[in-house]
């Protein structure tokens, strides 16, 4: 697979005022194929969200080469959208207005926006909540609004930062199926950050394990399980074998 997004030798150090520098990424390398579903697992604080923010164009790395579709990455663009780890919903906007944020910034008329947002709100199971404000929603509901908002602008690349972490197990399973359906029908490239190894295997073409901070790519696992995948697949020996291998790679990086 030819790399659609590539990062070479990406280095990034945070220099917060009045505090010591924090090295978040060191010689980070990554290749993502077009239409690929790649998951990243890694210890907390290893730089996963940081890298997603770099790809989104919000943070400039200190050094390194990042390309998308062969061109160097320059700032945010509507070809990418992020599902933020802390939801990032504007508290003064209703569910619908939050979902339509990106469309509004594209200059779309309110009628057209509604045509896009309505089916998405239905898909995430929030019909009837269009006029609610974020503080009136549960954590899982907020997370689904964040997902709908990212999908609304129909980006080629979906960056997902632990998008299902706040969901209950059953909703999570349903959303995983829904995500795979969207990914397959709309042919999106997905970079998916999670702490759940099982989720990573179930969804992905490949799973990357990162080292502890400063984060580097430690090992990449190819997931050769057939698609479409179903729930029963999670109890097959192949699945469990992969789970064990990834866990073995990951556990050395985790310090408590």
């Amino acid at each position: 697979m030819q790399a659609y997004i590539s990062g070479r030798n990406v280095n990034l150090t945070f220099r917060p005022p009045n505090r010591g520098p924090v090295r978040a990424l060191q010689n980070f390398d990554i290749d993502i194929g077009e239409g690929e579903f790649l998951s990243i697992v890694g210890p907390s604080g290893c730089g996963k969200s940081t890298f997603l923010n770099v790809l989104l164009g919000l943070i400039k790395p200190d050094s390194g080469d990042i390309r998308m579709d062969g061109k160097p990455l320059a700032g945010p663009g509507t070809d990418r959208a992020m599902v933020f780890q802390e939801f990032g919903l504007l508290p003064w906007r209703t569910v619908q207005a939050n979902v339509e944020l990106g469309l509004e910034l594209k200059g779309m008329s309110s009628d057209t926006r509604r045509e896009v947002s309505q089916p998405l709100i239905e898909m995430i199971g929030l019909s009837g909540f269009e006029g609610h404000f974020p503080h009136e929603l549960s954590g899982g509901m907020k997370q689904r609004v964040g997902l709908a908002r990212a999908l609304a602008t129909d980006p080629n690349v979906l960056l997902m930062d632990e998008p299902f972490a706040a969901l209950d197990a059953q909703t999570r399973d349903l959303m995983q199926v829904e995500l795979l359906r969207i990914w397959q029908t709309a042919k999106k490239t997905v970079l998916f950050v999670t702490h759940q190894i099982e989720e990573a295997i179930y969804l992905s073409d490949r799973v990357m394990v990162m080292t502890k901070r400063p984060g580097r790519a430690k090992k990449i696992f190819k997931i050769d399980l057939p698609r479409p995948r179903d729930y029963e697949m999670r109890v097959t020996p192949e699945f469990n074998e992969l789970k064990l291998q990834i866990w073995n790679e990951l556990k050395d990086e985790i310090t408590v």
Binding site: L58, P76, E86, L105, K106
Partner: peptide, 12 residues
């Protein structure tokens, strides 16, 4: 800051 980043990511 997060909310500012959110709207920036949509090209604000």
């Amino acid at each position: 800051k997060t909310l500012i980043n959110v709207v920036r990511s949509f090209g604000a």
